[in-house]
């Protein structure tokens, strides 16, 4: 089905971070949002992405926000870095979705929902770290990779899954020795994302609990957040509910605060 060679081919094709983005991220790291906005101005696609994003209802602004320095000011350094990573991820997403019934819009909506709720979780946990805040952006990479590797193989996977309840991640791991999170790590490395992002991603898989207490706890939060989002009507319909394996025991310790935070009744 999916071979190691195909996976390597996929990894080799991951584009490097565009120069404009590199520069924008560098200014954000220096805390200079004015220069970051100026750098971002050079990329029309990024400009448009940012405008559409911050004017979504989830951000709750009454009037239209269209000025880039204003947008960066609203987002702050943490928010700006997170949005830029989300943008980079969207560059990797396919022109059209086949395996999952998604659209650009619904994928961006998923990114936005995850980012927003992750922000609430970090606030609850009293964590103010822009790299940790950005870590959530790498999570949807697993969806993009899964789409790319399995899109022509729906029938084979359906047959396999009619006999055994295997999620895509397990199938990939058993076939190639590499899972979706390993490949996401390759993307993160290629884009020079901070190590904490990668560590958190692996902890989120539920397969590799971290020895670092903070990373371990945040990984559990992120695991539960992911499955909370993937239980939403649109993502169940899109076929995303069971593409990864949800581990209830893994999230037991943070389930109660999660339900309070997300107002689940």
């Amino acid at each position: 089905m999916v071979t190691e060679k195909e996976i390597q081919h996929y990894i080799d094709k991951i584009p490097p971070t565009p120069a404009v983005l590199q520069q924008t991220l560098a200014f954000i790291n220096e805390g200079d949002l004015t220069k970051a906005a100026k750098a971002a101005q050079e990329d029309p696609a990024l400009r448009s992405y940012l405008k559409v994003l911050v004017n979504r209802p989830i951000y709750g602004f009454k009037g239209e926000v269209s000025n880039l320095p204003q947008i960066f000011g609203i987002l702050g350094t943490s928010g700006a870095q997170q949005v830029l990573y989300n943008y980079m991820m969207s560059l990797l997403s396919p022109d059209s979705w086949h395996l999952f019934k998604l659209t650009d819009l619904s994928f961006h909506e998923l990114q936005a929902q995850l980012s927003r709720k992750w922000h609430d979780i970090l606030q609850y946990e009293g964590i103010n770290d822009k790299d940790i805040e950005s870590a959530i952006t790498l999570l949807p990479a697993s969806i993009i990779i899964c789409e790319a590797l399995f899109k022509g193989r729906q029938e084979e996977v359906a047959l396999l899954r009619s006999t055994k309840a295997l999620d895509y991640n397990t199938i990939l791991k058993r076939l190639s020795g590499k899972d979706l999170f390993d490949i996401s790590e390759d993307i993160a490395n290629s884009w020079e994302m901070p190590q904490i992002v990668i560590d958190l991603l692996h902890a989120t898989s539920g397969l590799h609990p971290s020895s670092d207490k903070t990373v371990d706890r945040l990984g559990r939060w992120m695991h539960l957040l992911l499955f909370f989002e993937l239980s939403q009507e649109n993502y169940v319909k899109a076929g995303l509910n069971d593409f990864l394996d949800f581990d209830i025991d893994y999230v037991e310790a943070i389930y109660e605060p999660f339900t309070t935070l997300m107002d689940i009744q």
Partner: peptide, 24 residues
């Protein structure tokens, strides 16, 4: 879709189930 083994079909939803998402 159900996984079938020994004439038993098993459906395995994940996560949260409420009146809004259950039909999906």
């Amino acid at each position: 879709r159900a996984v079938v083994k020994n004439r038993i079909g098993v459906l395995t939803p994940q996560g949260f189930i409420d009146g809004i998402n259950a039909p999906s």
